[in-house]
Computed example of a mutant assay.
Amino acid sequence: MRIVITGASGNVGTALLGRLSESGHELVGVVRRPPDPVGVYARVRWHEQDLAAPNAGAALRQVFDGADAVIHLAWGFQPTRNTEYLTRVGVGGTSAVLTAAHAASVGHLVHMSSVGTYAPGRYGERVDESWPTTGVRTSPYSRDKSAAEELLDEYEQRHGSDGVTIARMRPGFIVQRAAASGLMRYALPGYVPMLVVPLLPVLPLDRQLCIPLIHASDVADAMVRVVERRAQGPFNLAGEPPLGRDDVADVLGAKAVHLPSGVLGPLVDLSWRARLQPIDRGWLDMAFSVPLLDCGRAAAELDWRPRWSSVDALRDVIAGVAEQAHTESPPLRRRSLLEQLQRDLTKGLLTTRHLP
């Protein structure tokens, strides 16, 4: 098969390439910054393309020509102070991918959605794929994931069985050891070394925290099964059991202290507005709003079950933080504290520049 993967050098993309590298498939990657051809990135033909660019649709049409399947992973998490650009990457990029896939007569499109596409209302309870996908209104990430799924809905209503077959992956929060440096760069201010995270003595967090978490390799495994079966429709994906605050504290070896989300929310918002840290309040609102995931459909139709528990997945990424684990991919590679501060001074803060 010829498989085109947008965002192939990111967190999930790297895990997916590891899963596909020995498969014999022809792999094509579409990214903003192609990685050096080493490791899992070596057997991929790379195309440089920003999906937010006006010419993205036309450029993708050429790349998609002859593809049996397109796996659309590309998304933006920063800059949180430029949500218009993030929407162009996420929603506009999905529109460009969908238009190009249809024009190139691609047989199968696998779209990376998220638990963030789901509406609030069942926090701490499980929902299946029929739960409303209207998102969490206070989270720009969630709004864009919901809007991207609306595009897929409109396409399927317009073209029916004559259009591209579409599958939608709706995983919980995705982690892995190899992505530790990249994930911490998104989450920590440039002046804070990531090595402090495993050393935290106290974890001030609401005791009600209960979220779906999943290891990237389990997401990759589900995607391969979807492509092999040419499955369609939405699939929830999550590790078991759901991750709670005390689980996080145990993994960190920290003392859990109850800090209500109603107090933590304004603190996150104020520190973000003061440019002290890069995570906007929408991420916290989403963590305390999204439901848990019933993964019965993936088990029944894909014969899929997570190999990693949610706690072991968290343990894996925290071990990666302690080791400063990374890959040679631009989004995931390790940057020193000095390099991060230099980029903040010369290229703008992480929350404002297009390339993190």
Score class of each variant (00 low, 15 high):
E228M: 04
V311I: 15
G163I: 02
V257R: 12
G320M: 03
A231G: 10
R343Q: 11
S161E: 15
V251L: 04
S23K: 06
V164H: 09
A100D: 03
G93I: 07
H111D: 02
Y141C: 04
V30Y: 08
D344V: 00
Q208P: 01
A325M: 09
L17A: 08
E26N: 03
E156T: 14
F288G: 08
D303I: 09
D312E: 15
R137W: 08
A42Q: 05
D246S: 15
A180S: 02
A238F: 07
P198F: 12
G282P: 06
R61P: 00
V38S: 11
R245Q: 14
I5S: 00
A56L: 05
L16F: 03
N236C: 10
V30H: 07
V44P: 03
R185Y: 02
M169C: 06
L16D: 06
E129K: 07
S217F: 00
V224M: 09
A56N: 01
M194E: 08
T87L: 11
R81Q: 12
D250R: 15
L276T: 00
S217H: 14
A322M: 10
L337I: 14
F77M: 13
S289I: 02
E240H: 08
R229C: 06
P212S: 13
L109F: 14
R335A: 02
R143N: 04
I318E: 10
M223E: 12
L314P: 07
L243R: 03
A58Q: 13
V192K: 02
T6I: 02
